[in-house]
């Protein structure tokens, strides 16, 4: 067999290189590199022969050599990248990582459940267009009773057993309703206010605390109706407890509203079917409400013939007790961290 020309050998090498299988591991990769590109490798030896190649073959052979070397280098580099990635991936696939180890929690505290519920309710009402007003916790008889149509010596005062200060003629407010009178005096109509805060009554057992929280709300404008009261409370209750919740108004008596109503909510535990919490009635008493009494408007120098309004009030503890399944109100004021950390 006649000796092949350099070009022919380079062409043969090119074909051989093109059909080389990709190396399976780093050892094969290195072996390939040494075999072709090492000092004594095929490509290196051929390039040494270039010097002695006939002059007219040189350009073609040179180009071929470049192509072979370039092709090899590219192939080997691609193989190296592939093998490295495969190695990393394999390590990652095989590692053991304990996701069950507890997370390192940052030390968050928590809002008190009463405060959290209060804010939730305030947010619903501010979203409906009410504005927040607050009033003093120590009140005069006027704002707490007289101005709210509780005449002196009226049995209605027995409904709210009052704490009095000893050295001055003041009392701890028994409800947030004084804010009604204060806000009406401060701004005048038309006005919509939500008034959250602490209130005090001389009463203590598992459902009564001498200090508790209320939210009072009222709207005063021209031609505000009892239907507006009902619609507002319906909207509020459905935002608080969900769209399926129903309300029921029953006539009741609070001196500062008339007509006055007790507002029941379909039981949030059983959905109205009857359970232990709702005493098998399907309803829970949550709010007191009504149309603002003309005497209350008069106390704020507002003409009841021109303006009308509604007012409502609710105890936060009761709502929080239902929401969180708390059955003793005292838990809220003991401030036991084992309780507070649950929120």
């Amino acid at each position: 067999m006649a000796a092949q020309t350099l070009i022919e050998r380079l062409q043969g090498l090119k074909a051989q290189v093109a059909s080389l299988p990709s190396p399976a591991d780093e050892r094969e990769l290195e072996a390939l590199r040494v075999k072709y590109l090492g000092k004594k490798g095929t490509v290196s030896l051929l390039s040494q022969e270039m010097a002695s190649a006939p002059k007219d073959e040189k350009p073609v052979a040179g180009k071929l050599l470049q192509e072979v070397r370039g092709g090899l280098e590219t192939m080997l580099e691609q193989a190296r990248v592939r093998l490295t990635r495969e190695k990393i991936q394999k390590e990652i696939e095989q590692e053991f990582f304990d996701i069950s180890l507890p997370g390192s929690e940052p030390e968050f505290g928590a809002r008190h459940p009463i405060a959290a519920v209060m804010d939730e309710i305030v947010d619903i009402f501010t979203g409906m267009g009410f504005q927040v007003e607050e009033g003093p916790e120590v009140e005069s008889d006027y704002y707490n009773f007289e101005g709210l149509n509780f005449p002196a010596e009226h049995p209605a005062r027995d409904m709210q057993d009052t704490f009095h200060l000893t050295n001055i003629e003041r009392l701890l407010r028994t409800h947030t309703s004084p804010v009604q009178v204060r806000a009406m005096q401060k701004y005048g109509p038309p006005l919509s206010v939500i008034a959250p805060g602490k209130v005090y009554r001389c009463d203590a057992d598992i459902t009564h605390s001498p200090m508790f929280h209320q939210i009072e709300g009222f709207t005063i404008d021209k031609k505000i109706t009892m239907g507006d009261l009902k619609g507002t409370l319906q909207t509020f209750i459905q935002r608080l407890y969900g769209p399926k919740t129903a309300i029921r108004l029953r006539p009741s008596f609070f001196p500062f509203v008339e007509p006055g109503a007790e507002v029941d909510v379909s039981c949030v535990i059983c959905g109205g079917k009857g359970c232990r919490v709702c005493k098998h009635t399907g309803w829970l008493e949550i709010l007191g409400a009504g149309m603002i009494h003309p005497n209350v408007m008069r106390a704020s120098k507002i003409d009841p013939a021109q303006w009308s309004g509604f007012a409502f009030g609710m105890g936060i503890e009761r709502i929080a007790m239902l929401k969180y399944g708390v059955d003793d109100i005292r838990l809220f004021f003991e401030n036991d961290l084992r309780f507070l950390r649950q929120f």
């Binding site: 267009g129 504005q131 401060k186 038309p190 919509s192 206010v193 709207t219 404008d221 507006d228 909207t235």
Partner: peptide, 11 residues
């Protein structure tokens, strides 16, 4: 029904 509160005072 729902009242319109948009024109009420802001304190």
């Amino acid at each position: 029904t729902l009242p319109r509160l948009a024109q009420h005072q802001v304190g």
